[in-house]
Amino acid sequence: MPHRAFFWFILPSALAMLLFIALPIASVILQSVHIEHPKVMTEVETCGPFNCTTELRVDTEATAELRKAQPLGKFIGLETYLNRNHLAFDVLKVQWQERDGFFSFVRGLYNLPFYKALTFTVAYTFIVTPLVILLGFCIAVAVNAIPKILRGSVIFVSLLPMIVTPLIGSLVLFWMVDANGVLGSAIQRLFDDPNLSLKASPFLTWIMLFVYGVWHSAPFAFVVFYAGLQTVPQDTLESAMIDGASRWERIRYVVLPHLAPLVTFVALIQLMDNFRVFEPIVGFNASASATSLSWIIFNDLFGQQQLFGSAAATSMLTILGVCILLMPVLVRTWRQYKVVQ
């Protein structure tokens, strides 16, 4: 296709992406080096019948005017990145010097909002993704073994946890594990502890969110692997059998190599999706024990006092995280591309 025709065909789509994905990222960079104007204070003298007092009052008009003139706020450079709510290097330095033991340092790290969110996000991403692949593979193998006539309905039911809105999916589970819900009370009876609540313990909350993540994404891995299993080269399987390969050897040397590119695909999509984990934290009302990077951005932007600068700085750090996450894939793709060229 000539350049000219290509340009006109791709233009609307490229424009949409530039305006609403690339430009906002630029806007985030700009916002992250600014901070909201402080309220303009003026001294007002009020005289009562006995004496006069001066007090500081917020000059609403002047504040509004200043905010209107410079909506971005005041330029402060990288200060937001370094403050206590973000990278907090100063605090880290002090904690490192005063540490007694590595674990107490880690625990201190966990008290800083950014590192707390980062810890959960990374843990979620790297625990849920492999489990999703493993469970998806097991379901695919199992479904492949049941009679053909049943498979359609099994796939239908399997798709539900994935198709359903993440917020709704997490709410449905949340209501069940509620202390008065069906699973919550069953667990209480099981451990014979009427005060046991999944919500109260940070550790159990994390587990609950991981379980939700696996439940939600396993169908995706299952469907991809199941489709892959349908195209396993039967000739190779048969010759392996004739050569005396056991069932395990056939899986190890024929089926798994065939599915390897699919594993890469599922892992890539899952890493991207799990890194932005957000809805389950809202649905499970878990923000006291588990926060993610997306959630702290949301928390900064939501409510009366919108902290654009703080949210933007966290966003930039998150984008940096995504880039690091994607780096291996990009490098690999680039190498393959060079070979093809």
Partner: peptide, 30 residues
């Protein structure tokens, strides 16, 4: 199209696909 830039557009799209939506929202709001 078989030109080199198609590859780059697809890679850019992949990177855009990976952007957490919340980070974009913080760019939109103001």
């Amino acid at each position: 199209s078989s030109f080199r830039y198609t590859f780059w557009i697809l890679i850019a799209a992949l990177v855009f696909r990976a952007m957490p939506h919340m980070t974009l929202v913080s760019g939109y709001l103001l």
